[in-house]
Write a protein that binds this DNA or RNA. Structure first.
Length: 195
DNA sequence: AGGAAGATCTACT
DNA sequence: GTAGATCTTCCTA
């Protein structure tokens, strides 16, 4: 299998909108019991700081949200309706914002992901934020993991060079969204959570 | 103690 | 495709 190389911290040290867009096509890798589980990121959403009514950083720092203010490239895992959602912290340390990984296209370890999720359909395996964390066996224990480190159990690596169109829409599921659309996905991907 | 939360599943049309 | 039930965790009172 080919070698995956992580993206540097600088990549995350930028506006969440830019990072969300540029994470499309990169590879999410999970080292799990001596196996490599991996998938191409096909859908993301940006969450901003204090002025974003949908962001957990809209209020001041509380224990469950404090990782939003951590170093860029930190995994921030959040529970919603009994699902774990994987975010990556963006912007320089102390500026709360993050990118939610909403969907991936399975590449490696598909058999194991199917077992974790108890489904047999690849299209339905990782096409949602709570689905992909379950397929990759990601939960709160991994809060704070540095995804820029080659030896991390969860990391994000450079994808293959390919051309695709990016679609920009409003975020999904939030009760109060901003006027600005902050959801990005790869056009025509069969693995996005929703068109 | 009560309820909201960035979701998912199932069962319909 | 859409509606409603149910999901689990952690905040707020």
């Amino acid at each position: 299998m080919e070698q995956y190389n992580t993206l540097p911290r600088k990549f995350y040290e930028r506006d969440a909108r830019i990072v969300a867009k540029e994470l499309l096509g990169q590879i999410l890798v999970r080292v799990y019991k001596n196996n490599i589980l991996a998938g191409k990121i096909v859908e993301t959403e940006a969450y901003l700081g204090r002025d974003d009514p949908a962001s957990v950083a809209r209020r001041s720092k509380v224990p469950y949200s404090e990782l939003m203010w951590e170093d860029p490239g930190t995994a921030f895992i959040y529970a919603v309706h009994g699902n774990w959602l994987l975010n990556i912290v963006t912007m320089p340390r102390g500026k709360a914002s993050a990118v939610l990984i909403r969907a991936i296209e399975p590449i490696n370890g598909i058999e194991i992901m199917m077992k974790n999720r108890e489904v047999a359909d690849t299209k339905n395996l990782t096409n949602g934020p709570g689905k992909l964390t379950k397929a990759l066996a990601i939960d709160k224990r991994f809060n704070g993991v540095d995804v820029t480190k080659q030896r991390s159990p969860i990391k994000i690596c450079r994808g293959f060079d390919e051309n695709f169109e990016i679609v920009r829409r409003h975020r999904i599921g939030v009760s109060k969204d901003l006027e600005e659309p902050l959801r990005f996905y790869i056009k025509d991907s069969k693995f996005v959570s929703k068109k």
